[in-house]
Amino acid sequence: MRLEKDCPAPVCGVDEAGRGPWAGPVSAAAVILRPRARIAGLDDSKKLTARQRDALEPEIKHRALAWAVAFASVEEIAELNILRATGLAMRRAVEALSTLPAFALVDGNYAFDLPCPVRTVIGGDATSASIAAASILAKTARDRAMVELDAAHPGYGFAEHKGYGVPAHQQALKALGPCPAHRATWAPLRALMAAGADVQVIAAE
């Protein structure tokens, strides 16, 4: 937690999940880890398997001083754009913390408007324990939300691909058309539906 030690305490790590998919909300998590917390296997959520993330989630929640997860909806993404919607989800997560942070470490290079001072950290989920913890909570929460959307809108495979533009998702869109869970303003999705042809696949986070 070297980065955390350089910041006023308490410091929270903040990260998001789901900026790239064609469907579903964007999620964000904020985590304040206890100063001496050591969580074996903690890493960038993208480097972990779903099973590893699911195993770490309760451990993070148990060892954190405070944690919170929040979302911005498909409708809010359409209204605000994905960057501003991500910032909204992050603000909601930080504001929901049971302990008010004095400082926030945010993964990436964009300083979102949060209710405390912010330091951006490119690749922060690989260098900050609290950001790594936040990335895992944001990812596991969003994955569960996509499983719920799969039940509400069967046929698209949301539970498997989590809304990313993989070939199976493209084929389902061609056959079924978009549903309310889709980000209707998304340029790749619009292009696919307009042209009826394959578009470049977006890699999953």
Rank of each mutant, 00 (worst) to 15 (best):
R2E: 15
L3M: 14
K5H: 14
P10Q: 00
P10A: 05
G13C: 00
D15I: 02
A17N: 10
R19L: 11
G20W: 04
G20Y: 04
P21R: 01
A23Q: 01
A23K: 03
A23L: 05
G24A: 04
P25D: 00
A30R: 01
A30F: 12
R34E: 13
P35R: 12
I39A: 01
L42H: 06
L42T: 02
D43F: 10
D44I: 03
K46V: 06
K47M: 07
K47I: 07
L48Y: 08
L48A: 01
R51W: 15
Q52I: 11
L56P: 03
P58Y: 06
E59S: 14
I60W: 00
H62K: 15
R63D: 11
L65F: 07
A66Y: 08
A66P: 05
A68Q: 01
A70V: 07
F71L: 12
S73C: 08
E76Q: 08
A78F: 10
A78E: 15
A78V: 12
E79N: 11
L80V: 03
N81G: 09
R84F: 13
A85H: 01
T86Q: 04
G87Q: 01
G87S: 04
M90E: 04
R91W: 11
R92Y: 08
A93S: 06
E95W: 12
L97C: 02
L97F: 10
S98T: 14
S98V: 10
T99K: 04
L100Q: 13
L100E: 14
P101E: 03
A102H: 06
A102L: 06
F103H: 15
A104Y: 02
N109L: 14
N109P: 10
Y110W: 14
Y110P: 03
Y110S: 07
P115Q: 05
C116F: 08
C116L: 03
R119H: 13
R119Q: 15
V121Y: 03
I122W: 07
I122G: 02
G123S: 10
G124I: 04
D125S: 13
A126Y: 05
T127H: 13
T127Q: 13
I131F: 06
A133K: 04
A134K: 00
I136H: 01
L137M: 10
K139Y: 13
A145F: 12
M146Y: 07
M146R: 07
V147L: 13
A151K: 14
A152N: 08
H153A: 11
H153Y: 15
P154Q: 05
G155D: 02
G155S: 07
H161E: 11
K162F: 11
Y164T: 00
G165K: 03
V166M: 02
A168E: 09
H169N: 01
Q170V: 12
Q171L: 12
Q171V: 14
K174D: 08
P178C: 06
P178S: 06
C179M: 04
P180G: 07
A184F: 15
A184M: 13
T185Y: 14
T185K: 15
W186E: 00
W186Y: 14
W186Q: 02
A187R: 15
A187N: 13
P188A: 12
R190A: 11
R190K: 15
A191K: 14
A191N: 15
M193S: 09
G196S: 07
G196H: 06
G196K: 11
V199E: 00
V199Y: 09
Q200E: 15
V201L: 04
